[in-house]
Design a protein around this nucleic acid. Structure first.
Lengths: 343, 343
DNA sequence: ACGTCGGCTGTTAGCGCTAGCATTAACAGA
DNA sequence: TCTGTTAATGCTAGCGCTAACAGCCGACGT
């Protein structure tokens, strides 16, 4: 006997079990559970009651196959541990709330091959849309995305070619702006401290923009220091110590992110260095951790929440955005860049 | 004509498209793509070539329905923004790597109802296993999990009843141990500073254990302060200021997490307070941010990485663990608890 | 009385894939 | 020549659900 009639707790329930339990067709049960089509109030009640007491959980796999619709949105990001993507996720979830769409996260650890396989894996579930950090992908990944036939939104960055939609900021411009503000404030001997990661393209672009602006002012970085792994706060301290030791006459430290910047700030304060008089500091991201530091680190907001929101809106079809949505981060000078000299 | 023969870029590819493109049956294509069963080298090559040039991505929905197997593991956690769960995720991913299983994250924001719906949603995709933070769930959620017929691992906490497996630490014991260490060091006027969240059961249990141990020593908290939302580091400062202001003779501050503890530490140091002489401090979690602070905050490692690993091992069937795996966090006294007086 | 319309329910035919055989080809051994 | 064996491939029958349509029934207009 193939279908146990009795209460077999090991047997996975199907629509048929519910329909048999309350004497209607599977179709009617399906309609009730999805709130679709007309069902009389009494039938609806009967069905819900039966489903509840049996503990029926619909099988979305079968549902998705039959209806050719999947309420999932793939979100592919490089990391969860650096405070920036969780906020993007918050923006996404917020806007997806109530649309029936659900985000599914995949993490790539900044590895292009891993990104490719995460994308492949996600596409194989035929999601309704994809949100992917960055514009740089393997050729195969781009090809898959391009022919998936669903909305693709590349986020964070707009300096490059998007497969389809893009929502982000120009990191090159952000780097440039920061450099200009630093130069305007009178700093001249500027060092860069950042991550080693070859695939953090956004950090790379910021640095490129930064150096461009320096060059335009006839300047160049006087030192640079890289790290990878470990506690970013601690690394910020160590790198700062190394730079100050190697290049004692440096007068500005530009960090590729707020976390190492915060470490550097704590180090400078502990050393009794006059910030921002003797040395100025700046980071990037605008993480709210900075609010708790003894002094406010100069930074630029990366518009993380807003990026998440706008991307989700495009997927949900709420906003019929153009191809590329550029957001504009605001420079927050904080207390670690000295005021520009009056003209 | 239902099936376009020509290259229609809008048409979603199926096994049949690949099979027609290379002149074998769908079944053979399926075998090649899944590396299952015997296929001759030449056929395999032909199939892979065709799949590659067409850009075919298998439909896992159909595959899962047919094979009754889904390579997904649901992971349900309360939040991504507090540094603790990302590390758990790392442990999970690490151990799932190479098993063919893939984690899918759902976030509940510490809301029981939301947790219930996230669990429902996940179960409806018929995952191979579920990993869920905490032991407290709605009755309906517990019931669903219990009859899902898949391995369920509740993580972080072991003070309570598990649906099935549990991997975690005893937060009650952790709170007790910290209190004992504090009392042994001679502190007597102890205050608690923590989150407001009614559904952070682990923080609650730590506090209960903490107060139990205090009571056993004839002591009670002399003050308490709660917060919710905002930058934890900043909140730590503000709460610490409030407590020191209200209860000037307090001699120990016990924080429910490292982040607010770090804020408190920075505040005390900025005020020139003698730490740990005049006032001692302790947090909880062992986040690596602490390594970068001017002084090392006392804390207890929550075994996050290990919890993720062990949970994943149970799901993967690598470890045929018993029902409950208890891990034992180590107290790290750092520099913010004065050495216990010699006996 | 008849038509017909709208609300409700059931039937049929897949969705794209895979388990579990059945089939075929190729060849060795008797 | 025939059989048995093995490797390679194909066929059939679903997986559990839903789109699309087909019925059925009572109410209502004329």
């Amino acid at each position: 006997m193939s279908r146990p009639h009795a209460v077999d707790p090991r047997h996975t329930l199907t629509l048929r079990d519910v329909s048999e339990a309350c004497g209607v067709s599977e179709m009617t049960v399906s309609r009730v559970l999805r709130n679709r089509g007309d069902v009389s109030a009494s039938t609806r009640e009967k069905v819900l009651e039966a489903a509840r007491t049996l503990g029926y959980v619909p099988n979305k796999i079968a549902g998705a196959l039959a209806s050719q619709r999947v309420n999932l949105v793939g979100v592919v990001i490089p990391s969860l541990s650096n405070m920036v993507f969780p906020e993007v996720m918050t923006g996404i979830s917020e806007r997806l709330e109530g649309t029936g769409l659900q985000p599914v996260v995949g993490v790539t650890n900044y590895l292009p091959d891993r990104e490719e396989s995460v994308i492949y894996e996600m596409l194989s579930w035929r999601p309704s849309g994809m949100i992917i950090a960055g514009l740089e992908h393997t050729a195969a990944a781009r090809a898959m995305l391009a022919r998936a036939g669903i909305p693709i939104v590349e986020i964070m960055d707009i300096d490059g070619d998007a497969v389809n939609h893009a929502v982000g900021i120009s990191h090159r411009r952000a780097g440039r702006q920061m450099a200009e503000a630093i130069i305007a404030a009178g700093y001249r001997r500027i060092a860069f401290l950042g991550t080693q990661m070859p695939n953090d393209h956004r950090a790379r672009k910021r640095l490129e923009g930064f150096e461009d602006a320096l060059a335009k002012a006839g300047l160049a970085l006087v030192d640079r220091e890289y790290y990878s792994g470990g506690s970013a706060l601690l690394k910020g301290r160590e790198m700062t110590a190394a730079v100050l030791n190697r290049t004692p006459d440096v007068d500005f430290l530009y960090y590729s992110n707020d976390m190492i910047g915060a470490g550097g700030l704590l180090y400078c304060l502990a050393q009794g260095i006059d910030v921002p008089g003797r040395i100025g500091l700046a980071g990037f991201n605008g993480v709210d951790l900075l609010d708790g530091l003894p002094r406010k680190l100069a930074t630029m907001d990366a518009c993380r929440l807003e990026i998440g929101r706008r991307a989700a809106e495009i997927i949900a079809g709420t906003a019929s955005a153009g191809e590329v949505v550029e957001l504009f981060p605001k420079l927050q000078p904080g207390d670690t860049i000295r005021p520009a000299p009056q003209t």
